[in-house]
Amino acid sequence: MIGIIDYGMGNLRSVQKAFESLGSQATILTTPDMIDAQVSHLVLPGVGAFGDGMTHLRDRGWIDPINDFYKSGKPMLGICLGMQLLMDSSEEDAPSRDQPIPGLGMVKGTVMLFAGDAYGPGKLKVPHMGWNSLNIQQDVSLFADAPENPHVYFVHGYYCSPADSNVIIATTDYGSPFCSSLKQDNLWATQFHPEKSQRVGLKMLENFAAC
């Protein structure tokens, strides 16, 4: 069964229904003790701000259970904010660049703001919103049967910059290439929303469920 973590950051029903439409069982986990032997896959979704996300994870006691699940070797997927929270830290909501907000620290690296002004005034619009293509870097099961350079749906103003480039499985060009999906052992993450990416995205969720 696929467990979807509900930590108060956005609506999770579309993620749940997407899995259900693919014939997988998916349940929304409102408390950490709902993770039991039945839960074979864990999904950390989320929209909103990084700082709020970490606060909610901490207040609801999710940090250790998420780490334990990762260590158990079972497949786990972070989506959008859920991907960013896996990193060491983020400059979103940070008082300064030197004092980033700490994240879960499961993947080494930081979360950074798209520099809209670096490309001339008003040229690079932030948030990065809409359909952009993936440059698949590694032949992994998540992208099985995906078309070449598939278009997927993004809505975000910040992006992950992993310290180890070996974890990057796809990049996307926005101003310059950024990491749009990563894989570290049993941990997967996508900056885009597979559950909003129509057929292409649903296929990726199906591939994840088959992990």
């Binding site: 040229k123 809409g130 996307t172």
Partner: peptide, 15 residues
């Protein structure tokens, strides 16, 4: 020209 060069690296499609 700069705009179009930028388009080379931003493949975000129009919705």
């Amino acid at each position: 020209v700069w705009d179009h060069l930028l388009h080379f690296v931003t493949l975000l499609t129009h919705r």
